[in-house]
Simulated scan of single mutants.
Amino acid sequence: MTFPASFSGLPVMLLALLGTGGLLAGCQSAGGEVAVARQSAAVAVAAPAPAVALVPAAHSLAPTPLAPTSLAPLPDVSPELRAAVAELRGRLGPEAAALRPEVLERACVGYLNLRQAGRISRPGMLAIADMDLPSSEPRLWVLDLRAGQVLHRSPVAHGRGSGEGVQARRFSNTIKSACTALGFYRTQDTYRGKHGLSRRLRGLDAGHNDNALRRYVVLHSADYVSTAYMERHGKAGNSRGCPALPPDQYRAIISAVGEGGCLYLSGPGLESKWLDAAGAAQRLAAQGWR
């Protein structure tokens, strides 16, 4: 997906009003309906949304996105496991060039441990969202580890409680926080709700994302992740905690991850018991990426 470098023709103030008055509908509430957060025009004028690419590049008002948090390599990763992840990265090709190696390594280690523990059941399927990258970028990858292929790459929204700017800076497992919750998830069954086809998510990291089912955190479509919205506002809109997907890609992504797959939402400060390099190396040696 590519985004135009500039827009022109409307006054900046009007564009700011449109940017903050857009869709902020998020995830399913306990009653299965969408909870909608609305801002008044007065609030929009006082605190306009970041105007990324809304004016010609030479006069852009957009803040420079913050650099993603530096992640140190996992400790005690065997040379064999590190080489296997590096080889996988090479096979994934240019579509995975923006997938940070340290994020891929963590995701693979977690996948292997979750497979060994029987917590996920879809062999070779791994979806990774680097929520430390700006929402203006396609920061979700769906990988087939066995084939070494990127099946899908798309933008993905973060919760408005995590920050209504282009980058997420707060993460929470708390009910009604409207935040994105980091960690490993098992993809669950599908259903049809307010957003149409949706897939439930079960959080597998206690204290980090294990309220996902109670919070109705699901994969679903959202107009505020559409190409038109992102071209207009320079970023994705915000959910109420769901990793919401573009309307033209959500069906294919929901189908690809299937039931029993692994989704990893990466971000700063995440500690997970599934990031056990020794256990992952044993699983890889015995079963490969299956």
Rank of each mutant, 00 (worst) to 15 (best):
R106Y: 10
L112P: 00
L140T: 01
A107H: 06
L99T: 05
A147P: 01
S162M: 05
K176Y: 14
G165M: 09
R169C: 12
M125W: 10
I120Y: 09
A157N: 03
T174P: 01
N113P: 06
W141K: 00
Q116S: 15
A129P: 01
G161P: 03
P123M: 12
W141Y: 04
E105A: 15
S136H: 11
A168M: 09
T180C: 08
A98H: 14
L104P: 03
V109H: 00
R100N: 12
L112T: 01
A98F: 13
A168N: 08
L145D: 05
R169L: 14
H152M: 06
R115S: 03
S154Y: 11
V109G: 04
R146Y: 01
G165C: 09
L133A: 13
R170N: 13
S172D: 11
P138N: 07
A147R: 13
G148F: 02
S177K: 12
G159R: 01
R106C: 08
G110Y: 00
G163L: 08
V142C: 13
K176L: 14
H152F: 13
E95F: 07
D144A: 04
A129Q: 09
A127G: 13
A107G: 12
L133F: 05
S135M: 01
R115H: 05
R100G: 10
R100P: 07
G159C: 04
A147H: 00
S162K: 03
G159N: 03
N113F: 08
W141H: 04
G124W: 12
P155G: 11
S136K: 01
E95Y: 07
L104H: 04
R119V: 13
V103G: 05
G161L: 06
A147Y: 01
L114W: 01
A147K: 10
H152K: 07
G118T: 10
Q116V: 08
I175Y: 13
G159E: 04
N113L: 09
